[in-house]
C-alpha cells in the first residue's frame, strides 16, 4: 500500500534554524561555514603560491594581484575563520572523543546534559578566538 503520509523532513532549513535553541548549534553552523570558507581559500592558495615554482617574476606578479586592500581584508577573514575553526576543533576533538562530555549520570530533574557541561568550554573557545582575532587584526592592519 502506498503511503499517504505527508513528508515532513526539515531539509537544509534544519541545519541553520538555530533560533530559540542552544549555543552548540551556532558553534556547529559556524564550524561548518568557516570550514567551507577555509577549504575554498586553501585550494586557491595552492594555485597562487605554486607560482613560485616558475620563478621570481611570476611570484611577484601573483603577489601583485593579491595585494589590494580587498584581498588584505579577505585574508584577515580567513585568519579569523582559521582561529575559530582551530579552537573549536580542539573543543570538538575533546568532546567527540568522549573526554569532555562526562560519564553517564542518574537523570534527575532539572537535567544536566553534556551540552550544558561543555558550555564553559565553548565560552572559552569563543573568548580566546575573539582575543586572537583582534590581536591578528592589529597585526594585519595597524602594526604593519
Amino acid at each position: 500500500m502506498a503511503s499517504r503520509a505527508h513528508p515532513n523532513r526539515l531539509g537544509i532549513k534544519g541545519w541553520v534554524a538555530g533560533g530559540r535553541w542552544g549555543f552548540a548549534r551556532y558553534m556547529y553552523t559556524l564550524h561548518r561555514l568557516t570550514g567551507l570558507g577555509l577549504l575554498a581559500y586553501f585550494v586557491m592558495h595552492i594555485f597562487v603560491t605554486s607560482t613560485r615554482a616558475i620563478g621570481p617574476e611570476s611570484w611577484e606578479q601573483a603577489m601583485e594581484i593579491v595585494s589590494g586592500p580587498l584581498f588584505a581584508f579577505g585574508e584577515y577573514l580567513v585568519f579569523a575563520a582559521f582561529v575559530f575553526h582551530a579552537l573549536n576543533g580542539i573543543r570538538l576533538g575533546a568532546i567527540e572523543l568522549g573526554f569532555a562530555v562526562g560519564v553517564p549520570i542518574e537523570p534527575v530533574y532539572p537535567y544536566e546534559t553534556s551540552v550544558g557541561r561543555t558550555q564553559r568550554l565553548a565560552k572559552a573557545v569563543l573568548m580566546i578566538a575573539f582575543v586572537v582575532a583582534v590581536w591578528g587584526g592589529l597585526d594585519f592592519f595597524i602594526w604593519k
Binding site: F82, A86, I90, L138, W143, K144
Partner: peptide, 19 residues
C-alpha cells in the same frame, strides 16, 4: 591535529610577522 601544529606555525610566520 597535524594542521593545528603546522598551520599554527605557518600563520604565525606569515601573518603575525609584526607580533
Amino acid at each position: 591535529l597535524v594542521i593545528l601544529v603546522l598551520l599554527g606555525l605557518h600563520m604565525t610566520i606569515m601573518h603575525l610577522n609584526a607580533t
